[in-house]
Computed example of a mutant assay.
Amino acid sequence: MDRGLHATRSASPARERAAFTAWQVRALRPAAPAAYPFDETAAAERSGRAFDRGYDPLGIQGQDLSVLATGDRTERPRSLWVPVLVAHGTADIGKLVGQLPCLRTALA
């Protein structure tokens, strides 16, 4: 996981809706496509709805720890022989590859 993105995600959010929403907006901004302006209001609304559905801080930490614990998985997919389609826009692929390990693995 990108250490800068991980630092943003792993900061301890408060258990209140407003604090969670602000934390999520800060975490989502770096992954926003460069070709489009970041809609902070829409991101805050989506984050608030996610909080309302059932926010669990330990669940987020567990997910992040699982990603870190698995290590580099770049070589393993090369041994798979299955049809795969990875489709993404060309405008933001460069920005995302630097931040999302799953895309780096998919493109390896």
Rank of each mutant, 00 (worst) to 15 (best):
R104L: 04
R49M: 11
P101A: 14
M1Q: 13
A14C: 05
L107P: 03
D56V: 00
R29S: 12
D2S: 14
P37K: 14
F38G: 06
Y36K: 10
G4D: 15
V67K: 04
G98H: 08
R9I: 01
A19S: 14
A69G: 04
D56C: 12
L65M: 15
T41I: 14
A42S: 14
A7L: 11
A7Q: 15
S10T: 07
S79C: 09
E75T: 12
D56K: 01
A14E: 10
A50T: 04
E40G: 10
A43M: 11
L65P: 05
M1E: 10
A11R: 12
R53C: 08
A32F: 03
P77V: 02
R73A: 07
G4R: 11
F20A: 03
A22V: 01
E45P: 07
A34W: 07
L65R: 13
A42H: 15
L103G: 03
G59L: 04
R104N: 03
G71F: 04
L80Q: 14
V25R: 06
F51M: 03
R78F: 09
Q24W: 08
H6W: 06
T74I: 00
R104Y: 05
R17I: 01
G71Q: 10
R104C: 05
L103D: 02
L65I: 07
L28C: 10
R53V: 00
V97N: 03
L80W: 14
V67S: 04
W81S: 14
I93D: 00
A91F: 04
P13R: 03
A50G: 11
L65S: 08
I60D: 01
V86D: 09
P101M: 02
L28H: 04
A50S: 15
L103M: 09
G71S: 04
V84Q: 06
G48C: 04
L107I: 06
P77A: 06
T8W: 10
H88W: 07
L68R: 08
L68W: 09
D92N: 05
V25A: 15
R17W: 07
L85T: 03
R53K: 11
L28F: 13
R26W: 02
G71W: 09
D39G: 12
D72Y: 02
Y55E: 02
T21N: 03
D72E: 10
R9A: 00
I60M: 08
D92E: 08
A34H: 12
A42L: 15
E45Y: 07
G48N: 07
G71T: 05
R46K: 13
